[in-house]
Computed example of a mutant assay.
Amino acid sequence: MTDPATPTPSAASRTLDARQVTTLSVAVAVVLIALKAFALGASGSVSILASLTDSVLDLAASLTTFYAVRWAARPGDHTHRYGHGKGEAMAALVQAGLIFASAIFIGWEALARMFDPRPVTGGSWAIGVVVISMVLTAGLVWTQTRSLKASGSMAVQADRAHYAADLAAGAVVLIGVVSGAFLEAPGLDAAAGLVVAVWLFWGALSLLKGAADQLLDRETSDADRAALTTAVLADPRVGGVHQLRTRMSGTRLVAQMHIDLDRALTFEAAHDIVVDAEQRVLAAFPDADVLIHADPRGPWSPAVPATPSPSP
């Protein structure tokens, strides 16, 4: 069995990358809040209000991710034998809740402004802030995408999904501000805010599903299970794999299985086969926590006694 308490060098490098990108995420959120607060004061746009509210919750979500990634990277201890990886799923769950709250608030405000339209002023300032915000958000999403290739962090994935939604929502906000300030159609500004609310709600549902799957120990994908089985069966001495169970703990794959071995093998030989199988799994899934149980199969061979021979 592999030792889940000792992270490998590759795990350490992935954790470092995730920490760096979460720090950048917090910094971007702070800058966006400052810019949008200025734009809201200058324009009074409901679209800007919607975007500002979302950025405030972005900061809360990014701070949650910031701490969750560090907590999840801690090795296992006497109270958490499997490590703290599910802290990332918990962070994604918190993010989903924050996004739901944001969507409800923005949707309510947009509907109110539809029945009570208000003019959008300072359109040029608002448009400039929205464009700068979109550029910063695009840069963050690009960085998070690169980080995910190295870390596979669920918390970073949730954060990226949030900011990717923000990027698309920013385009909607831009349309709303332009229509409200230059086309004298404040109702379109409110409608743009409503579109943002619906977009956020849909993204929150996706995050909620992903977090729930991990917290409820959903099996990994069929492709991953097939890759596990293929790695173990690469040794012709392994007759079969059954009772395969998998789940994810943060970025770490946890797998348990039984394999069929010739009952004529010695204990030492069977142990070596199991260790070799674990190493092949680790080559395909670095940092996995693997537990393999050997089952005797096939006819008993009289050449290898089932019990120790009595001493003469």
Score class of each variant (00 low, 15 high):
Leu111Trp: 14
Val198Gly: 09
Ala11Val: 05
Ala165Asp: 03
Thr307Val: 15
Glu88Cys: 00
Ala269Ser: 05
Ile292Leu: 13
Gln279Ile: 06
Ala103Phe: 10
Pro305Ile: 12
Gly203Ile: 04
Ala60Cys: 05
Ala101Asp: 04
Glu184Arg: 15
Leu93His: 04
His258Ile: 08
Ala192Gly: 13
Leu167Val: 10
Ile292Phe: 07
Ala12Ile: 05
Asp289Ala: 06
Ala226Tyr: 06
Thr251His: 11
Leu282Arg: 01
Asp213Arg: 05
Ile175Thr: 10
Leu52Pro: 01
Asp159His: 10
Met257Glu: 00
Thr22Asn: 07
Met248Tyr: 11
Ala110Asp: 10
Ala34Thr: 15
Arg225Phe: 00
Val254Lys: 03
Ala192Trp: 14
Ala5Leu: 07
Ser206Gln: 13
Gly240Ala: 14
Phe38Asp: 00
Gly83Pro: 09
Ala72Val: 06
Gln256Asn: 06
Lys209Ala: 13
Val196Gln: 15
Leu291Ile: 12
Leu148Lys: 08
His293Gln: 15
Val69Gln: 07
Leu40Gly: 01
Ala223Cys: 00
Ala112Cys: 00
Val21Glu: 14
Leu200His: 02
Ser133Leu: 02
Ala288Met: 14
Val196Tyr: 03
Ala161Thr: 08
Thr22Lys: 10
Trp142Gln: 15
Thr220Asp: 03
Asp58Leu: 06
Phe182Gly: 09
Leu244Trp: 06
His162Glu: 04
Pro4Met: 00
His293Gly: 08
Met154Cys: 04
Leu174Phe: 13
Val131Tyr: 11
Asp189Cys: 08
Leu253Asp: 08
Asp213Tyr: 02
Arg19Asn: 15
Leu216Asp: 07
Val281Ser: 04
Leu93Thr: 01
Arg118Pro: 04
Ser43Thr: 12
Trp108Thr: 07
Pro310Met: 03
Leu16Cys: 01
Arg237Gln: 14
Ser311His: 12
Leu200Gln: 06
Arg263Asp: 07
Leu49Met: 06
Thr145Ile: 05
Lys86Ile: 04
Ala138Val: 03
Ile33Leu: 01
Ala306Leu: 13
His162Ile: 02
Ile104Cys: 02
Gly210Pro: 01
Ala283Arg: 09
Phe267Thr: 12
His78Asp: 15
Trp71Ala: 12
Arg118Asp: 05
Tyr82Phe: 13
Arg14Pro: 01
Gly250Arg: 03
Ala110Pro: 05
Ala103Pro: 04
Ala226Lys: 10
Ala165Glu: 00
Ser25Tyr: 06
Ile106Ala: 15
Tyr163Val: 01
Leu32Gln: 13
Ile259Lys: 14
Leu136Thr: 07
Phe38Val: 15
Val238Lys: 05
Ala211Asp: 06
Gly180Arg: 01
Gln144Gly: 06
Ala37Leu: 15
Ala277Ser: 11
His162Val: 02
